[in-house]
Design a protein around this nucleic acid. Structure first.
Lengths: 227, 227
DNA sequence: AACCGCTTGTGAACGCAGGAACAAAGTCGC
DNA sequence: GCGACTTTGTTCCTGCGTTCACAAGCGGTT
């Protein structure tokens, strides 16, 4: 039954989106929803949505649609959201503080069980409802809480050593916000999020479809004092 | 000559990574670099890197490699990084404050020229080196600074109206951190970044390759001789 | 009870991205 | 000046993701 040989990663990412939309629909009391409407809410193609859902086995009623709460529970089960995931966060700077205080994680089954920073100035500060701990306690907290996910929000220079310490402590998945490519041992999943890359792609796509005929790079008159 | 019909988006995203690595290499005084070494630093396949670079036309010397500074300038030109891009940021909560204070943008040619929030409590606060402005000034700032990129870090409920106001003011690209699918008029690029989706994909991949047969969530054998 | 419309689920084609192998070319050494 | 080595740029191929289009199934209606 649960032996789904593999679900494509792109599908998994979209399933997480469907799960969020469905949770909102449950709260608003919606009973059933069609693939077309759900696809519109998630911003995807209806056919693709049905194909994504087909990986979970049949979970809709033909002629009617999908039962919202049932579908949500099923996706949650497949994604492993039945139990909360314990995460540790290393690097409590600007971004780290925001991540620690961001409510969007806790609502979706992820809980930070430890915040760590190398700077003594940061250690002891309260961020959200946790205290920042020194790096020395990382290993103990990871093993003690069975945390499986590590989030790196440190400067780029120390991201690799932090990654090494996390994996050595037993963390199996790493979400890296530092702008460096991490190398981790086999069996450890690493996912890279580079915020400025997103901006650069955005800027390029705009430039690519931008005002045709404007080949001069000096186009954009710096009327504003943007320096 | 410069009429590159189209560069795949996946390539553009990697070009941004190469640009970052190359900038670091320039600072460290490196003169030339081979595709293999650069690929390792960027975390990609050497052949793929060469294919990416082939979209810019020949920019390497056979038998030697790529000249670091030349290649960096060329990628910067293609990505449109010659001139800084002015961005406005809406929603100065936890995440918004972190984005405003994040140095990784300014170093890469993106500058925030306006921070906006609907809450009077936030307006007037200083974040980074800018003051938070009320939403009423958004239109004037966007037109005055010729800002082309808008970043949304608001709660999900108001993200769509904020998107509408940004596009009405003339913003052509939007980076959305709110967990909702935005609909924008044609000609406006929207890019979605959902942090919890990243975590969910990570958790799923871990579960998928995790200890087989262990359906109990309490599994986690610490005798890590796995791979 | 049978028909009809609506929606899901699936099969097939298209396009794209990724990876490996090969040829061209330039440099270094003799 | 010539040969060999190194590295780029390109080409082919395999696999994946996405999209379109159709058959199957359920509910409501007459």
């Amino acid at each position: 039954m649960q032996s789904r040989p593999r679900i494509p990663e792109a599908t998994v990412a979209r399933l997480a989106v469907y799960l969020r939309v469905l949770t909102g629909l449950v709260d608003s009391g919606r009973g059933t929803i069609s693939s077309g409407e759900l696809a519109a809410a998630a911003g995807v193609n209806p056919a693709g949505l049905r194909k994504d859902l087909s990986h979970l086995g049949p979970c809709g009623t033909r002629g009617v649609g999908y039962e919202v709460s049932t579908l949500r529970d099923r996706i949650a089960a497949v994604l492993g959201m039945e139990t909360a995931h314990a995460c540790v966060l290393v690097g409590i700077g600007n971004l780290g503080s925001a991540l620690a205080g961001y409510g969007g994680f806790g609502n979706r089954g992820f809980e930070f069980v430890g915040l760590f920073d190398a700077s003594p100035a940061r250690v002891g500060q309260r961020v959200g409802d946790l205290l920042v701990r020194p790096m020395e306690e990382l290993d103990a907290v990871v093993t003690g809480t069975r945390a499986t996910i590590g989030v790196i929000a440190t400067p780029a220079e120390v991201a690799q050593p932090v990654c090494d310490r996390l994996t050595a402590a037993g963390v199996r998945s790493i979400l890296n916000f530092a702008p460096v490519a991490l190398s981790a041992p086999a069996g450890v999943g690493v996912r890279q999020v580079d915020l400025s890359v997103e901006l650069q792609v955005l800027a390029f796509l705009d430039k690519q479809r931008g005002v045709p005929g404007q080949t001069t790079p000096a186009a954009l008159a710096p009327a504003g004092g943007m320096a």
